[in-house]
Amino acid sequence: MSSASIPAARPFESSLGAKLLALFILAYACYALGQLDFSWPRFVKGIDNGARFLDRMFPPSFKNWDQLLTGFIESMQIAVLATFFGVLISLPIAILGARNLMPSWATWPARLIVTLCRAFNPVIVAIIFIKAVGFGALAGVLALVMGSIGFVGKLFMEAIEEISMKQIEAIRATGAPFASVVAFGVLPQVMGRLVGFCTYQLDANLRNSTMVGIVGAGGIGGTLFAAFQRFEYDFVLAILITIIAVVLLGELLANYVKRIFNGES
């Protein structure tokens, strides 16, 4: 960068460009606040509202724990199925899309699919699928499968593009068919990272399944939204606490699974 020489002379002074950028961001923030019609009285009124809101949330009510459990189990099922099928579909797409293994007629359609899957938020995809297959868990699974293809597919594709081609060359030189080259040359090199992506995706899908439920695609999100509409804010808080606890637990579990696989292979 051209400004590199200035900080070297005065290490703790920010450059003129950085100052201008900060000024610009500040000016933009003021402009945007005006555009969005934010006003102090509204904010204060909101805080006031919020206090009443919090008051109605406490203490959390686990009275309807059976609804909570049903919703959670469904969310879990959605997450498991979405991860399983998402990863299953991602594998061939990632291999087709890897530019070091495939010619361009195969890579660009595969890359287009992954980009499309990534572009839309799972909630939007869920709305579309609800129109197609009706309300319920199926729409949620399908939406999250697409999201998983977008995420795992992209990372896996990048992982394959980073493998050592020397090992592939050696397997090719034995006259192995392509599928065997994948089994013995490609997969051993990327398996460890793939396991990491899968556990992360399961975690992400569990979080996202709360989200797609809000628009009607099943799971705990649906329970949450229903509680909201009935103004049962104490139950809402109970659900939120459970979600946070489960996500934390999931994170610990993911670390544990990662350790099993890293220790093994």
């Binding site: 969005l36 019609d37 909101g46 809101f53 979080r207 996202n208 809000i214 939204f225 996500v247 934390l248």
Partner: peptide, 25 residues
């Protein structure tokens, strides 16, 4: 930080719509 991350932005939005009313705020 964990609490902030575990709750989805859509759920956060649901909460704040109840607090501030509908709209970009």
């Amino acid at each position: 930080l964990v609490a902030s991350r575990s709750v989805n932005s859509l759920v956060w939005a649901l909460l704040f719509v109840a607090v501030f009313g509908p709209g970009p705020l």
